[in-house]
Write a protein that binds this DNA or RNA. Structure first.
Length: 845
RNA sequence: GCCCGGAUGGCGGAAUCGGUAGACGCGGAGGCCUCAAAAGCCUCUGUCCGAAAGGGCGUGCGGGUUCGAGUCCCGCUCCGGGCACCA
């Protein structure tokens, strides 16, 4: 940011009408120095919180950043012009694996690596002209921020929302750490490294997000979010209503006629219970040992061993995926009683039943479940339909039928539809004391511990006497030591650092060891938007009053890739913080409106550093400037759609620069002769075009239609270009009004060049960024004349210029009088006339 | 397999409530300016027939509703995304 302020001596870049670089840097400097977009918590204007998802600092901004922050900056400047006190903070999600991997490779400490990249990214954001209240900057790895991340963790622990448990977890060999379920892709690979994730049994820390499953699901309805994001969250939470009930194990009668052993199953279809012809337990189910008879033990053990050694993806490979169906399960030797029929059915163990969902055991109803059908076929088990399928179901090759229909073969349920049969079946189970209605979720608790160095340490001490003991709050933050070696061993350096590891128990002062796991970086990003409201407090994570003032975020902007992970965690965290008393009075949803911008593709795949197909923004700063590049991103298409970066893209960007040049020349023509006095129809036409442009851009910005907003500005410029080279000189007042309006509506899009032109017109005393959004005169927005389309049988035959207030009768009269229409009618009389004045008359014969 | 999006000129896209399809830009053609070029400015540019006037066709495909459909309904095709043994 130095050595470029050459002022009047500077020369425009090749072919440019103005000195892009000098002008842009001048304004960027000014916004920073004057703190133009800093906002205090007691600002009297109505609050507006605009936020872009804080980024992982990966160095200079790439096109994805430019796109994201162009939209965000437009919102900030637009809302400011609308009179809001806009909170526009910025920060960095600065913990994460790339820095640690770089440390292993180069020996540089992750903090040095990270701080350097933050500096680069910050500089390129400033060069883009994106404005923030930098006083509020937050970095995840800042000890002040870590202190509160840790304090919050301890509060959650205290409230029972954090806990430690041994569980089969997802281990990524590439990242050398465990992953949350959300970080494992559908094909069983790690979302970061792409390595195949394996299961390991480990002691890990969890956050109890499942306690909020219902609320997180139901509250989605009230959010102004893209429907597709809400659908993804609904699916992820995966609520399903059903019943849980016991199947008594045959031959294990206890006292009083109660079974000594029972298998508890979960089903969403209790109505199909009469069709249960076998039951299945998961290979990991603890009851399996008891169920397995000695003659079946070898087969059961073999299956169990095989499944234990498999990855999720191998386990999921079904019959057509290569695995023979008859290898998928084994008979346990035991039977359970179907309480509906009173008949015993065999119990199998099979890999298609998962221990982690429901009760880990199912009643199998092959007739109404495709998976059970396939298994029953392979093992020769009976299939009994309990819902009458459509007449042609079987003749069309239909197998399991899970649709609507009337109950058959189902005793007291016969003749009922599915819904009422569910109710009756449940009533039966409850009256017999066998089971209850239950709700199951796909959502699991959030595994937050990571075996990595570059994250926020979990503030726990392990004492041989007292177990896991929280580090007292006045000793926070727990910081990782700097004198560590980064070795590619897969071991966290923390676990090897005796100085860090060895400590004393906060309770008895005896020797103890520190927890060496760090937190998932999604913990850091789950509350940064709250810290932004009040990053100054030293005794609380944030002042609740400040949070209540700014929250919820009025407009959140980010990538669709966070549809589940970050957005779900942050919704959970906000609620948890309220419930543990850290944010009294706060609204429970953090992000009122969400916008997800489209990704940039190149050669068919996402443009990204890891794909190595970046087109860096810096080269465009030198040619068309930040304004030109911003204008391109706004203009290229709907902000929510992805677009393909092609060979033609440079030409479109160049076109955007050309458009700004045109405005510059239009407004800085000091040879221009103008006139005053009486206004002509041509003058009025320009006034109308001006007011219409303001009206259109106002509405375009409201509905995120930035591409048409730019188009409407271009239309006005085209009009003005014609006007200024017309037969007579332009009217000074008309031109002034048009120029000012254009600069005002373009100010949020291309802030530098508009600020410079505004300053030339109005002096340095009333800068553009201090102006209000322009209004328009609705009477001038209405067209002077409109085109009346005359159709014959729905085909356009003539176009007539008419007054916009033309009556229906006059419109019909004109249409019937049209030569072209009469010709098309061929002498016939219309049998019907549809008139929609002033736009259309349709003559029907 | 299931659930969401989407498909409009050579290209990106516009058409906000069922009423002029193709705004705006890119690319292309021609012209002005110039010794010449660059830059800039102007005109044209969906497609077919036609010298023109004019006309036919046209929003992925096939039907339907309507005076009128890019827009609504039914059935497909292709592309993109999400989910996928969740009982």
């Amino acid at each position: 940011m130095s050595g470029t302020d050459q002022g009047a001596f500077s020369i425009p870049a090749m072919g440019r009408a103005y000195d892009v670089d000098t002008i842009e840097r001048k304004w960027q400097r000014r916004w920073l120095d004057e703190g133009t977009y800093e906002v205090d918590n007691d600002d009297p204007r109505p609050p507006f919180y605009a936020l872009c998802m804080y980024p992982y600092p990966s160095g200079s901004a790439h096109q994805g950043h430019v796109r994201n922050y162009t939209f965000g900056d437009l919102v900030v400047r637009h809302q400011t012009m609308l009179g809001r006190g806009v909170l526009s903070p910025f920060g960095f999600d600065s913990f994460g694996l790339p820095a640690e991997n770089a440390a292993i490779k180069t020996g540089t400490h992750p903090r040095i690596f990270t701080d350097a990249r933050i500096a680069e990214l910050k500089e390129s954001l400033i060069r883009l002209g994106a404005v923030y209240d930098w006083r509020r900057e937050v970095r995840s790895h800042d000890p002040e921020y870590m202190r509160w991340t840790q304090a919050i963790f301890l509060r959650l622990l205290q409230a029972g929302l954090a806990y430690r448990a041994n569980a089969p977890v997802n281990w990524c060999p590439g990242c050398q750490t465990v992953l949350a379920n959300e970080q494992v892709l559908a094909d069983g690979t790690c979302e970061r490294s792409g390595d195949l994730v394996v299961k390991r049994d480990l002691e890990q820390w969890f956050l109890r997000i499942t306690a909020y499953a219902d609320e997180l699901l139901e509250a989605l309805d009230s959010l102004e979010w893209p429907e597709r994001v809400k659908t993804m969250q609904r699916n992820w939470i995966g609520r399903s209503e059903g019943a849980e009930f016991d199947l008594p194990v045959v031959g294990r009668d206890g006292r009083d006629g109660r079974p000594a052993l029972a298998l508890r199953v979960f089903t969403t279809r209790p109505d199909t219970s009469f069709g249960m012809t076998y039951a299945v337990v998961a290979p990991e189910h603890p009851i399996l040992d008891e169920l397995t008879t000695s003659d079946r033990r070898a087969a059961v053990e073999e299956l169990r061993r095989r499944v234990a050694g498999e990855t999720d993806i191998e386990r999921m490979a079904s019959a057509d995926g290569g695995k023979a169906l008859d290898k998928r399960g084994a008979f346990t030797g035991s039977s359970v009683m179907n309480p509906f029929t009173g008949e015993p059915v065999p119990v199998y163990v099979a890999d298609y039943v998962l221990m982690g969902y429901g009760t880990g055991a199912i009643m199998a109803v092959p007739a109404e479940d495709e998976r059970d059908w396939a298994f029953a076929e392979a093992y020769g088990l009976p299939i009994v339909r309990t819902v009458q399928p459509p007449a042609d179901w079987e003749s069309l090759g239909g197998r399991a039928y899970s649709g609507e229909g009337l109950k058959i073969n189902s005793g007291f349920l016969n003749g009922l539809d599915v819904a009422s049969a569910k109710v009756e079946a449940l009533a039966f189970l409850e009256s017999k004391g066998l089971g209850t209605a239950t709700v199951n979720y796909r959502l699991r608790d959030w595994l937050v511990s990571r075996q990595r160095f570059w994250g926020c340490p979990i503030p726990i001490v392990h004492c041989p006497e007292h177990g896991a003991v929280p580090v007292p709050e006045d000793q926070l933050p727990v910081l990782a030591p700097d004198d560590v070696e980064f070795l590619p061993t897969g071991q966290s350096p923390l676990a090897l650092h005796q100085g860090f590891l060895k400590t004393t128990c906060p309770i008895d002062g005896g020797p103890a060891e520190r927890e060496t796991d760090t937190m998932d970086t999604f913990v850091d990003s789950s509350w940064y938007f709250l810290r932004f409201c009040d990053p100054f407090s030293a005794d609380v994570p944030f002042d609740p009053a400040a949070a209540v003032h700014w929250m919820p975020v009025d407009q959140y902007i980010g990538g669709i890739e966070h549809a589940i992970l970050h957005l779900l965690y942050a919704r959970f965290f906000t609620r948890a913080l309220i419930d543990v008393g850290l944010a009294p009075g706060l609204e429970r949803e953090p992000f009122r409106r969400l916008f997800t911008q489209g990704i940039i593709r190149m050669d068919g795949t996402k443009m990204s550093k890891s794909k190595g197909n970046l087109v860096t923004p810096s080269r465009y700063f030198e040619t068309v400037g930040a304004d030109g590049l911003r204008l391109f991103h706004l203009f290229v298409g709907p902000p929510g759609d992805s677009f393909e970066w092609t060979d033609q893209t440079d030409q479109v960007i160049e076109g955007c620069g050309r458009f700004l040049d045109r405005i510059w020349r239009l407004m800085s023509d000091d040879q221009r002769v103008t006139r005053s006095g009486e206004q002509t129809p041509a003058d009025l036409a320009i006034r109308r075009a001006t007011h219409r442009a303001v009206a259109q851009v106002t509405s375009d910005l409201d509905r995120w239609s930035y591409n048409t907003a730019v188009a409407h500005c271009m239309e006005l410029v085209n009009e003005l270009a014609g006007y200024t080279r017309g037969d007579q000189p332009p009217h000074a007042d008309v031109l002034d009004e048009a120029f000012d309006a254009l600069l005002l509506v373009m100010a949020p899009m291309t802030p530098h060049v508009t600020a410079e032109l505004w300053e030339a017109r109005h002096g340095a005393g009333s800068p553009l960024h201090a102006q209000s959004w322009p209004s328009f005169d609705p009477e001038l927005v209405v067209e002077e004349t409109v085109t009346l389309v005359v159709q014959v049988n729905g085909k356009v035959r003539d176009r007539l210029e008419v007054s916009p207030t033309i009556t229906e009768d006059d419109a019909i009269g004109l249409a019937l009088g049209s030569d072209k229409a009469r010709e098309a009618l061929g002498g016939a009389e219309p049998t019907r006339v549809v008139a929609r004045p002033p736009r259309l008359v349709n003559l029907v014969i």
